[in-house]
C-alpha cells in the first residue's frame, strides 16, 4: 500500500473542500471496502479524508420519513427500534450482509458506495475496465458466475454487491448529498449507474460530493416483507441472487408492492413492471410466478451465470411467498 496523507476534519465543509480539490482524495468512514481494495492495489488514493468525526450518524423520524445518517453503522441500523418498526425490510437486508464485526464498522454511506466484488476488478494482473478504463473486461468471456444478467454493457458485466441498497431501492429511498455546489437529493434508483461506456463510475455522485444521509418514506410495508439472499454458503457470502420483497395485502389482495433484486446488475435492480403485475392480484404463488416472469424480461446470461435466469425468478417467487406467508 502506498503512503497517503491522512486528515480528519471535524466540519463537513472542510471534508467537502478537501475532497473537491483533490482528485486523488477519498473519503474513509468504516474503511471495510476501501482498505481491502488499497491492500490489493486496486485503489491507490494519495489522501484519505476520515469523516468519522462528522455528526452524521443519527437515525431519526421526521415528517413522513425515516432519516438515517451516512455514518450510522450497518449493525446499529439493523437493530434500531425505529428502523425495525418502520422499515423492517431494511433491517433484514442489513443483517443478511457481511458479518457482525463488519456491520459494526461499515456505514450506511459506505455500504451504498462499495465497489463490485468482480474477480477481475480485484486482481490488478487481470484486465478490468472499471479499475483501468480501456484494459478490457475480463469477466465478459471469463469466469462470470457472479455476474450481471440485466443492464450490462460490453465494457462491464459486474454486479453491485450491497444488500442494503437492494432494500433501499425497493423502499423508494432518497440519498442526501452535500457538495461544493450545495446540497441535493438523489432518488435511490438514480444513485447508482449502469456501466455503459464508463464502468469506472459506479454512481452519479459528482466530484467533491459527500453522502450525508438516506431518507426512506413511510409506507405500509411493515408486515409482509422479506429479504431473501441466496448464496453459496449459509451466511457471510455475497449473493448469487437476492430479492427484497414488500407487500401490502388486504383481504388476500395485493394493494401495493415493492420488488428489487441484488446480484443481477451493476446497480440494485428495481422491478417496477413486476410490481405492477402484482398489484390488485390475489397473493398466490400463481400471481408471484407471473410477476417473476415479467421481472425477467430482457435478462441475458453469459457462459457461467445462465443459472441466474432460473434462480432469479425462483427467488422472486420464494421471497414473495415468504413475505406474504403463502405456503
Amino acid at each position: 500500500m502506498n503512503q497517503f496523507q491522512y486528515m480528519r476534519p471535524t466540519k463537513q465543509k472542510a471534508a467537502i473542500d478537501a475532497l473537491a480539490k483533490d482528485p486523488n482524495a477519498k473519503i474513509i468512514a468504516g474503511g471495510t471496502n476501501l482498505i481491502d481494495l488499497m491492500k490489493r492495489g486496486v485503489m491507490t488514493p494519495l489522501k484519505l479524508i476520515d469523516i468519522n468525526k462528522l455528526p452524521l450518524n443519527k437515525i431519526e423520524h421526521e415528517g413522513n420519513s425515516t432519516r438515517i445518517g451516512a455514518l450510522a453503522l450497518n449493525g446499529a441500523v439493523a437493530e434500531d427500534k425505529l428502523v425495525l418498526e418502520k422499515q423492517p425490510l431494511l433491517a433484514q437486508a442489513l443483517n443478511a450482509g457481511a458479518s457482525a464485526q463488519l456491520r459494526n464498522m461499515a456505514t450506511v454511506g459506505g455500504n451504498m458506495l462499495q465497489r463490485t466484488r468482480c474477480h477481475y476488478f480485484y486482481d490488478t494482473a487481470l484486465p478490468c475496465n472499471k479499475r483501468e478504463p480501456g484494459s478490457g473486461c475480463g469477466a465478459l468471456e471469463g469466469y462470470n458466475r457472479m455476474h450481471a444478467i440485466f443492464g450490462f454493457s460490453d465494457k462491464c458485466i459486474a454486479v453491485h454487491p450491497s444488500d442494503m441498497s437492494v432494500a433501499l431501492v425497493a423502499l423508494d429511498a432518497t440519498v442526501l448529498v452535500s457538495g461544493p455546489k450545495g446540497d441535493r437529493r438523489i432518488p435511490f434508483a438514480e444513485f447508482h449507474r449502469l456501466p455503459g461506456d464508463t464502468p469506472q463510475q459506479d454512481t452519479n455522485l459528482a466530484q467533491g460530493e459527500l453522502v450525508t444521509a438516506v431518507e426512506i418514506p413511510d409506507a405500509a410495508f411493515t408486515k409482509h416483507v422479506h429479504y431473501l439472499k441466496v448464496r453459496e454458503r449459509a451466511s457471510y457470502a455475497f449473493a448469487l441472487v437476492s430479492v427484497a420483497a414488500a407487500l401490502s395485502i388486504d383481504n388476500n389482495t395485493i394493494k401495493d408492492a415493492r420488488l428489487a433484486m441484488g446480484g443481477v446488475a451493476h446497480k440494485p435492480w428495481r422491478l417496477t413492471e413486476a410490481e405492477k403485475a402484482l398489484i390488485g392480484k390475489p397473493a398466490t404463488e400463481e400471481t408471484f410466478r407471473q410477476a417473476a416472469e415479467v421481472a425477467m424480461r430482457g435478462a441475458k446470461a453469459f457462459k457461467y451465470n445462465a443459472y441466474k435466469l432460473k434462480l432469479a425468478p425462483n427467488s422472486i417467487v420464494q421471497a414473495l411467498k415468504t413475505a406474504a406467508a403463502v405456503a
Binding site: Y6, R8, I28, G30, G31, T32, I35, D36, L48, D50, N52, G75, A98, S99, A100, Q101, L102, N104, M105
Partner: peptide, 24 residues
Amino acid sequence: GQCGACTVHIDGKRVNSCLTFAVM
C-alpha cells in the same frame, strides 16, 4: 475482513482489526 481471526473490541464493539487504520 473475511475470516474474523483479527476480531478485537473497540469501545466495546467487536470489529475486524485488519480493516481499520490505527490512526482512525
